[in-house]
């Protein structure tokens, strides 16, 4: 040991990184807040209602009011609950949902951490999200919460495999795990996007993404008609809000990943318009709209149907398509898959 001294360069790096993290998380939280508003508006319109329109102009302040309301509420810890794990649950739900954003690029220069194994990192971190759900369900000491946690955990673990295989196809096409390289592999216009050669994988990834975030029609984890609200039934106030934030942050994350891997990220669809973050936002917004559209359209799946879809339909489709892509790459037509 050379004794204690303050390494100002290191302090500066840490401070600068913290500022960058804030610059990422604050817009993300705002995005989450307004995604809930947008969801209620869109589902309202689809059901020929108006949606929230009381707080602020056209109801624009509704998410702020909701947030304030949840902040004011008491966090009740059930007397039979395992107190430490009960509090750890929401933390473990939100932490991976935010940590995964570290490697998501918005343009080819705007990224918090441009790491080589970005795709693997995202997969590993998002696979941790299930702990929040399991721990919350178990620590609540309530049968509904426990049933919800079990359903959700089994579902997340199942669909993670299909998602992982879909990503294998992408990294075969891009020949890189770096998210910026993956997007740049799709440059050259709309027809170069990986959605075309990897169309089956795109569909599998999109639907698995819906299942992974426990959104309708795969929301059996919180099936209101059967188990009240599932794993977070015992949570109130901000503790509940944290689960809510995690769910929506995960939704935006899946939409962003779909955009990056299949829809060309920040690349412009036509050559005469410049690339930029606005395309990223538009495409992610479109995928998010699909999420909301699904919720307004489809009835909830039965649990055995969910499991069948994941294991017997999606996993075989992805494996077959990976073999097809690998085989085609050995032929003269291999360029179609790059």
């Amino acid at each position: 040991m050379e004794g204690l001294y303050v390494d100002w360069a290191a302090v500066q790096t840490v401070a600068w990184t913290l500022i960058k993290i804030m610059a990422l998380v604050v817009p993300l939280m705002l995005g989450v807040a307004y995604l809930t508003y947008w969801e209620r508006k869109i589902i309202g319109w689809m059901q020929v209602r108006i949606g929230p329109n009381r707080v602020g102009f056209q109801g624009l302040l509704q998410p702020i009011a909701d947030g304030l309301k949840l902040l004011m509420k008491e966090i009740i810890i059930p007397s039979g609950a395992n107190k430490s794990l009960f509090i750890l649950g929401p933390i473990l739900a939100i932490a991976p949902a935010l940590a995964a954003w570290a490697v998501i690029p918005f343009t080819d220069t705007l990224v918090l951490a441009n790491i080589n194994a970005g795709l693997l990192y995202v997969m590993a971190i998002t696979s941790m999200g299930v702990y929040g759900v399991i721990i919350a369900g178990w620590a609540s000491n309530s049968k509904y919460a426990f049933l919800g946690a079990m359903r959700s955990a089994a579902q997340i673990v199942s669909y993670e495999i299909a998602m992982g295989f879909a990503l294998v196809g992408v990294l075969m096409a891009a020949q890189s795990l770096n998210l910026i390289d993956i997007v740049q592999g799709q440059s050259g216009g709309l027809h170069q996007w990986y959605i075309w050669p990897l169309f089956p994988l795109f569909i599998v990834y999109l639907i698995s993404g819906v299942a992974e975030t426990n959104r309708a029609p795969f929301d059996v984890a919180e099936g209101e008609s059967e188990i009240v609200a599932g794993f977070h039934v015992e949570y109130s106030g901000m503790a509940f809000a944290v689960f809510f934030l995690a769910e929506y942050a995960n939704m935006i994350l899946i939409a962003a990943l779909t955009t990056l891997m299949f829809l060309g990220g920040w690349l412009s669809p036509v050559s005469f318009l410049p690339d930029g973050i606005v395309w990223w936002l538009l495409k992610t917004g479109f995928v998010l709209f699909l999420f909301l559209w699904f919720r307004a359209t489809f009835p909830r799946y039965r649990y055995d149907q969910i499991m069948r879809l994941g294991w017997k339909v999606f996993i075989p489709i992805t494996i077959v398509w990976i073999v097809v892509v690998g085989g085609m790459m050995q032929t003269p037509y291999g360029y179609l898959f790059h």
Binding site: A124, I125, S127, M128
Partner: peptide
């Protein structure tokens, strides 16, 4: 490292 998290922690 990432595979350890993905396989052991995640599954």
């Amino acid at each position: 490292a990432i595979v350890l998290v993905l396989v052991y922690v995640g599954a």
